[in-house]
Design a protein around this nucleic acid. Sequence first.
RNA 1: GUGGAUUUAGCUCAGUUGGUUAGAGCACGAGGUUGUGGUCCUCGGGGUCGCGGGUUCGAAUCCCGUAAUCCACCCCA
Length: 469
Amino acid sequence: MATENFQAPKGTRDFYPDEMAVRRYIEDIWRRVSIRHGFQEVDGPTFESLDLYKVKSGVEIVSQLFSFTDRGQRDLALRPEFTPTLARMVAQRAAGLPRPIKWFSIPRCYRAEQPQKGRLREFMQWNVDYIGEASDRAERECLALCADALLEFGLTPDDFRIGWNHRAWLTHVLVGTFMPPERISNAFYILDRLHKYDRAGREALYREQGCSDKEKAYFEFIAGTSNQSLSELTDLLSAFMLDRHSRLGEPPPPDLCHLKIDSTVREFEKRLKDTNLAAMCSFDLSIVRGLAYYTGFVFEISDRQGENRAIAGGGRYDNLIEMFGGPSLGAVGFGMGDVVLEILLRRRDKIPKAILDNHQNPDVFIVNALDDAVHAERLIFELRRSQWDSTRQRIIRPGLHAECSYRSTRNIGKLLQEAAASGAKLAVILARAELQRGVAKLKNLADRSERTVSMETLIEEIHAALDPA
RNA sequence: GUGGAUUUAGCUCAGUUGGUUAGAGCACGAGGUUGUGGUCCUCGGGGUCGCGGGUUCGAAUCCCGUAAUCCACCCCA
């Protein structure tokens, strides 16, 4: 019979115990921090109707999906993200859910893209959504949660930067000054790429997008800005616009400060300063985020040192729930993928050694020097079992993590060496001489002390030794 | 989807202009004289050299195809 060599499919990963430990570490932090910020965990199906993904993103996105047809001729697709499922879930039960709806999820997602650094075809994505809150409190809570998670991973504000912008504001500024509304999507496309190119690359981009001289000048101005505050930027922008217009002999554009949307953005910045978030955040005109469904505030977290792609990104999408057949509910959300995050954590040496070593230190290690394994096996099963109290409906004594050697040697020195290497706190030595007297030795592996205990009370003694309280 | 580099043991890698039976370190397993600690010593299992063709007396090595990985594009919810 012919044998075949199988590999994991392109862009997927195998999680052997060491990799699984790191993945669990990341997911545990996402989950723990989400819960403490008042979010509840949800999940949905791994695949959805193909149409669900066309509602939001349009038909061109289909080429990036893993899609298939079931035997009932239904077109389905593996989820490329969680937001459509979430929107569907909210829309279905919108009437009965308490507001605001604060949900998070850690779905596995799939995209049929060319894998490269920080981007795979199957990945985990922490997804946070805050629905039914019109005020910018939702934005701040999401930012606080996202930043808190990164801090929990041991990263500092020196490692990452939160850049933010406001799409509605930007649209008003552009349209209110010089840009025809139909050029806005080109403008967003250009802004999104501005910092990736040098002067020549940007020229090519402007040509390709059919930019007017005015637009070019504007984009070049933005390309030259970085790290200014919102008010500095709007002042600079006003001055720049006035200068341009006077030189071209055109009537001056309306004062940017009097644009209606402007006050809400300034207010947002002021409220950020009232929290401790402002230190990590900077206004950034070049952040617009890819697709069209963000309606206001948008943000992106990037690595300060590396050329990594964004660690996380999100924003406000006020129309989405409605698009999926629900009521009109404002919403803010963000996503963070495991792939880029893990690269960053490894590069900054932020994954604890105990996680990398994947040591699950046992509570107790059985050293069996007997010819027969029966005593050791009975003991280990007893130790591992929890004690359940059925009247109180709870576990009254949790089972212990008990290990033994799977090697055939009965050399106590070797076995103790293995016990110590396992990181166990206690070792039980079962040997013939003691067993004949109905006792065993209980050894504290940390201080190397040992005492003789009766087989009758051994299990209680072990529990007592591990939990002195 | 496009271009470049890469693929030899579980991992990291040697392997000369094509020439005997393809190596090392780490890891893994056994033993070190049946009773006490991460060291050390000895031994061992492991490879269709990514896969499939071709050239050759002979291919890990040269040629063609193909898959995967990494990097750069495209795209990025």
